[in-house]
Amino acid sequence: MATFETEFLFVYGTLMSGVDNQWSLRLWRACGQPSEAKVPGRLYTLGGYPGMKDPLDGEAAWVHGQLAQLPDSPALLADLDAYEGDEFVRLRRTATLRDGRIVPVQVYMYQPEVDENQRIWSGRFTFAQ
């Protein structure tokens, strides 16, 4: 995976704070408190977890999630990359915070094609979906 100077990771699914899995717990132990944020994009349910894709041209769509301030830990990112697997690639995007500030972030983007019937139109993933 690519390395960026960005010090934030935007998460929108199984890595969010409060999700009970070893990867989320490890991320938030290292990063502290999350901040609410949103990133332009489309969100899809993939059977127990979500995947994010860029918005369509001219589309004003948002994915809502959390921002983690990353520690200087290449090992943490390498482990998260392995957890996300080959279907996801960590890319640079921009996030908007609740106060309107825009910051550069890294985010895991889903690469395979998806059916629009899987789209989460609210842009918010819940495990009940």
Rank of each mutant, 00 (worst) to 15 (best):
T45A: 15
G100N: 08
S122W: 15
S35T: 03
L15P: 06
W28L: 08
R90S: 12
P112Q: 01
Y110K: 09
P104S: 15
P74F: 11
P34G: 10
L15F: 07
R98I: 12
G13C: 07
L67A: 02
P112T: 00
S122C: 06
Q106M: 15
P34D: 02
D54P: 10
V89R: 15
S122I: 12
A61V: 03
Y110P: 14
R119H: 00
D20E: 13
F8A: 06
Q129D: 14
R124D: 00
L70C: 04
A61L: 07
L43C: 06
L27A: 11
E5C: 06
W23V: 02
Q66G: 09
W23L: 05
K38I: 01
L56T: 05
D20V: 04
E113T: 14
L97N: 04
R98W: 07
I120W: 11
M52G: 09
V39L: 09
Y12E: 04
W28D: 11
L27D: 02
L70R: 04
V11K: 11
M1G: 15
P55R: 13
Y110V: 06
P71R: 01
A37T: 09
A30Q: 06
E5D: 11
C31I: 11
Q111P: 00
G48L: 07
G123M: 07
K53I: 03
L77S: 01
K53V: 03
Q129C: 10
Q33F: 09
D86A: 15
L67K: 10
E113P: 00
A60R: 14
A82Q: 13
G58K: 08
V105Y: 10
R98Y: 02
E87A: 14
Q129I: 10
Q33C: 12
D54N: 10
S24A: 15
